[in-house]
């Protein structure tokens, strides 16, 4: 069994009176794609917000490479090697596609701020390497983006935006990648293509662990190795896709939410 790179132990997050995550535990191994699924409002995104340091959990702990990381500021967590995307994409709209990816490499630079201002030669070389790398990543997900590095991110269509966000997150070679509904709003073809690209990342980036949040169960079917299902903040099932999809609790949770939506 591969090593555990990120785990949550008895994680709880309350917003005032609302318990958004209720005593949830899971572990992510290297080279694994962990699916976290559940109906809308189940608390999936909140898990990411806690892991990435935007919220401090009410109780429980998050362990990354055997360090407890809860309470650390987001930029430190990113620096340690946990990167994420957002459910509602949060690109830097008024700068270029390439610049978005270069910001994603912020954690890579060994140089300090002072260096970046005064050690121009070394920085120029670093920049050149970063650009090459950015274009490589962009090309992996979307040749279109690689061909239009100077396009403003705000001018991209939704599908390209999602891909660019993944590129930005991957740019610094993170150990853990958190993807929040990356296929939302895509048609089945696009979504299947994206899932294949995600599977490919695992082959290229040896040792990476990926958590994939999805609302739609069908999307994770082929991608996730292991699935945790949550509903109203609580874990209701875990196991392989076949196991969880046949679980009556899961079916009930999903049926309930379908009815609500209708």
């Amino acid at each position: 069994m591969a090593e555990i790179c990120l785990s949550a132990n008895n994680l709880t997050m309350k917003f005032g009176g609302l318990v958004a995550i209720d005593n949830v535990s899971w572990a992510l191994h290297q080279n694994e794609i962990l699916g976290i699924i559940g109906p809308n409002g189940a608390g999936k995104t909140t898990i990411f917000n806690v892991v990435s340091g935007l919220y401090t959990p009410t109780s429980g702990e998050i362990v990354f490479k055997s360090n407890i990381i809860n309470g650390l500021p987001p930029y430190k967590i990113a620096k340690m090697g946990i990167k994420r995307t957002f459910q509602q994409s949060r690109l830097f709209d008024n700068i270029s596609v390439l610049d978005n990816v270069l910001v994603g490499m912020a954690t890579l630079s060994k140089g300090t701020l002072v260096n970046s201002l005064f050690r121009r030669k070394r920085m120029a070389k670093e920049l050149d390497e970063n650009i090459q790398k950015s274009l490589g990543i962009l090309n992996h997900f979307s040749p279109f983006l690689a061909e239009n590095p100077y396009r403003k991110a705000g001018d991209l269509v939704p599908g390209e935006r999602r891909k660019l966000e993944i590129c930005r997150a991957l740019a610094s070679d993170p150990d853990v990648l958190l993807l929040d509904e990356p296929a939302a709003g895509m048609d089945p073809n696009e979504s299947a293509e994206l899932m294949e690209d995600i599977l490919k990342i695992r082959d290229i980036r040896k040792g990476i662990g990926i958590i994939l949040i999805e609302h739609d169960m069908a999307v994770v079917q082929k991608t996730a190795d292991y699935i945790v299902v949550i509903s109203y903040g609580k874990e209701i099932a875990r196991g392989s896709f076949a196991e969880v999809s046949s679980n009556p609790l899961v079916q009930e949770a999903y049926l309930g939410s379908e009815n609500e939506n209708a």
Binding site: S52, K83, D99, V103
Partner: peptide, 19 residues
């Protein structure tokens, strides 16, 4: 560039590793 990132989206900037 990082100034711009802060302007465009502070949360995304933080999560990209910018202080």
């Amino acid at each position: 560039l990082y100034f711009n990132a802060v302007r465009e989206d502070e949360i995304a900037a933080k999560c990209s590793g910018i202080n």
